[in-house]
């Protein structure tokens, strides 16, 4: 090993244990980028489909045709076949993108605003208010995820509105707790204490110094919730708590397809694939966002082995 140029050694926490390789110029480093790109592309595609549904869909998504029930794909002019009442499946999937995006994004936004505010106030004001809010969150956390949404959805009755309310209620404690935790950490930062010694009042400190610095964890949390919301919404729809028929709703289409899965498996399969693609898109984009905004979650070769102090 007297040459000036030494081959790139292996990477990762255990490179110390790895057998030294003699060849190979570049250790793999560009893996995550593809995921980021894919996630954003999927979301863009779904948005385009949702916006342009009127132009893209070959048929009216709600027009039934009892004569053409459960046609398999590529038959009778229906590229992806028809559902149990003879509606064109492709058109319903295309229009379903609207509802899917809507029920993934809107509850997240509402929850981020309300949960974020509750977390900010709870963490910054502290005292008995914080204690009460945290106890309420504890109780809400005692209902495992979807159960609370089911209960609320069932009590309020089926419909988009009650579905969104149910999803917001379920996600608020998560958001609130994450933001509160971040507020508690930021509150102790010297820059917040500097603001106190400048003479700023509590409200100004909360708005100018605390809130901007808890925005990143809030965004990260919201992006993760959006992916989960796709699934949660589909689950509620599947149980009949989703949009009122005949709105195109992937979860409800899946439910309809389930009933007919013996004779026409394509209905359930295709509507499920649509759900998975959207969820993958949100999850990948969320991961990308988290890598960018949350340094703690960024586990790369740079940090492994403790990095260098």
């Amino acid at each position: 090993m007297s040459t000036r140029r030494v081959a790139d050694p292996p990477t990762g926490p255990f490179r110390a244990f790895a057998r030294r390789r003699t060849g190979g110029d570049n250790p793999p480093k560009r893996q995550l980028k593809f995921g980021n790109w894919l996630g954003v592309s999927i979301l863009l595609l779904v948005v385009i489909v949702a916006v342009g549904a009127e132009w893209l869909a070959p048929f009216d998504p709600v027009a039934t045709n009892p004569a053409e029930r459960l046609l398999p794909p590529f038959s009778g002019g229906h590229v992806l076949g028809t559902d149990e009442v003879g509606r064109d499946l492709l058109s319903r999937l295309i229009f379903g993108a609207r509802f899917a995006l809507f029920v993934a994004v809107v509850p997240t936004l509402i929850s981020a605003i309300i949960g974020g505010l509750i977390g900010l106030i709870s963490g910054y004001v502290g005292g008995w208010l914080d204690a009460v809010i945290m106890r309420i969150f504890d109780v809400m956390f005692s209902f495992p995820g979807i159960l609370l949404a089911l209960g609320i959805g069932a009590a309020l009755g089926a419909g988009t509105g009650s579905m969104i309310i149910a999803m917001v209620v379920v996600t608020i404690p998560e958001t609130g707790r994450v933001v509160r935790g971040a507020v508690l950490a930021v509150r102790e930062e010297p820059y917040v204490e500097s603001a106190v010694t400048l003479g700023l009042n509590r409200g100004m400190i909360a708005i100018r110094h605390v809130a901007p610095n808890v925005l990143n964890p809030l965004i990260v949390m919201a992006s993760l919730q959006t992916g989960n919301n796709v699934i949660l919404a589909a689950s509620l729809s599947f149980l009949g708590l989703g949009a009122k028929p005949p709105t195109a709703d992937w979860g409800a289409m899946l439910s309809g397809g389930k009933a007919a899965m013996v004779t026409a498996p394509h209905v359930a399969t295709l509507s499920g694939i649509a759900i998975v693609i959207l969820a993958v898109g949100f999850n990948l984009a969320g991961d990308a966002l988290r890598d960018k905004l949350d340094p703690r979650a960024r586990i790369s070769t740079v940090r492994t082995l403790g990095g260098l102090k």
């Binding site: 990477t11 990762g12 926490p13 255990f14 793999p28 480093k29 893996q31 992916g227 796709v230 699934i231 589909a234 689950s235 599947f238 979860g251 899946l254 389930k258 359930a268 499920g272 759900i275 998975v276 969820a279 993958v280 999850n283 990948l284 586990i299 070769t301 492994t304």
Partner: peptide
């Protein structure tokens, strides 16, 4: 044990797909 290796990436991708999949589907 081997971050960013082929097996790590395969596992990460499987996790992504499984968490993006409604269980009833």
């Amino acid at each position: 044990r081997k971050p960013n290796s082929f097996r790590d990436r395969s596992i990460t991708v499987s996790v992504l797909i499984l968490t993006s999949m409604p269980s009833f589907w």
